[in-house]
Structure formats: C-alpha cells, structure tokens
Computed example of a mutant assay.
Amino acid sequence: MTPERQEANDIATKPHFRPRIALIALALLAGLGGFMAAGTAARAATTERVVTNRYSGLAIEGYDPLAYFIDGRPELGLPAYEAAQGGAVWRFRNEGNRDSFAAHPEIYAPQFGGYDPVDLARGVTVAGNPRFWLVTGQRLYLFGREDTRDAFAADPAPYLKEATQRWPALEEQLAQ
C-alpha cells in the first residue's frame, strides 16, 4: 500500500471520522423529513371546494362546462376564453359560453363542486372525472368512476337527497 493510501485509510478508520459521517447522515435525514412534511402539507392544501387540477389550476381539467349541455359531450376549452370563478380557472370553447357561465355559474358548473354525488352520499369527497358525467334535472354531475355514474343514473333521487344533506358539512372541511 502506498503511503498516500495508508494515510487515507488511517483517516477513514479513526474514531473522529465516524461521528462526522453520523452528523452528515442526520442532517440529510432531517432535510428529507422536512421535505416529506412539506409534501404532506402541499397535498393537504390541494383539497378544494371546487375540483381543480393541482398543477394547472383548471376546473374540470379544462373542459368547457357548457359543452355538456350544448354538445352533449365533454369538449376542451381554449386558453383564450378563460374565466375565474369559485377559486378556479374555467375554460370555454368560445366567448358566448364564457359569458353564459359568468352570468349563471350555479347552473353550468358541476354540482357539489365537481365531487362525485354518490360518494358524497356516503360521506366522502371523491373528485369527479370530467369524462364520467351526467346531466340530469338541468344540472351537471361528475363522477369518480363509471360504476358510480351508472348507479346514479339508475335512480338519482336517493343519492341527491343524501348528498345534498351531507354536502354543507363536507364542503366546510375542504380548504377555501
């Protein structure tokens, strides 16, 4: 072994070196713990009264809420026709849809903030998916899964009754 390697080996095996490694490891773990705690807080803060994409801030993934009524299918809105309402950014296919929504968001926005009414009836908030939808009673409802949409479509009245009763308390728990 060369003298340089022997000296490096001696330094690495001396007792004063190990506490330094332990200190570095503790600092890294503390930093990782802080990062994980920050990630938990960020996830909790993404809960909203209106379902939005946590990265883009777009309500219903950028789909035009009026398209469900007019076209009978989900259609993506355009960045040129946006409106802010209810703490979310909504996109529309044209100026007329945007203006109609601005005048009557209570009619055109998904009911219950876009949360699945079947899950709300069970007492939990599950974000609706704009691809699983139903217009009934002149209102738009989004569902988290296809099976909950189908159950709701078969008999909406009991789900609506229970979801309507539970919604105020559940909405209060969501971040503003």
Rank of each mutant, 00 (worst) to 15 (best):
M1R: 06
P3Q: 11
Q6A: 14
Q6L: 13
Q6P: 00
I11C: 02
A12V: 03
T13W: 09
P15H: 05
R18W: 14
P19G: 10
R20G: 13
I21G: 03
L23D: 11
L23G: 07
A25F: 01
L26V: 08
A30I: 15
G31H: 08
L32S: 10
G33N: 10
G34R: 03
G34S: 11
M36I: 13
M36W: 10
A37M: 10
G39C: 04
G39R: 15
T40N: 05
A42Y: 08
R43I: 09
R43E: 15
A45H: 05
A45I: 00
A45W: 04
T46M: 10
T46V: 10
T46K: 09
T47K: 13
R49T: 06
T52A: 13
N53I: 01
N53M: 04
N53P: 01
R54W: 08
G57W: 11
L58K: 03
L58S: 06
I60C: 01
I60Q: 06
E61T: 13
G62I: 02
P65Y: 14
L66C: 03
A67F: 11
P74G: 10
E75Y: 02
L76G: 08
G77Q: 09
L78W: 03
L78K: 15
P79Q: 09
Y81W: 13
Y81H: 15
A83T: 07
A83K: 06
A84V: 10
Q85F: 05
G87N: 07
A88K: 05
A88T: 08
V89G: 03
R91A: 01
F92E: 00
F92W: 05
F92L: 01
F92H: 01
N94G: 06
N94A: 07
E95F: 03
G96H: 09
N97A: 11
R98H: 04
A103W: 00
P105H: 10
I107R: 14
Y108V: 00
P110F: 09
G113Y: 03
G113N: 02
G114S: 07
D116A: 02
P117V: 03
V118E: 08
V118A: 14
A121C: 04
A121S: 15
R122G: 11
G123M: 11
T125R: 11
T125D: 04
A127K: 13
G128D: 10
G128L: 08
N129H: 12
P130M: 07
R131G: 08
W133Y: 12
V135G: 08
Q138T: 10
Q138S: 14
L140A: 09
F143T: 01
G144C: 09
R145W: 06
D147P: 00
D147N: 12
D147G: 02
T148W: 08
R149E: 13
R149F: 07
R149M: 12
D150V: 02
D150L: 05
A151W: 04
A151T: 13
F152Q: 00
F152W: 08
A153S: 14
A154W: 04
A154N: 07
P156T: 02
A157D: 13
A157S: 11
P158M: 06
P158N: 10
L160Y: 00
K161I: 04
E162K: 14
W167S: 01
P168T: 01
A169T: 05
E172H: 13
E172G: 15
Q173T: 13
L174Y: 00
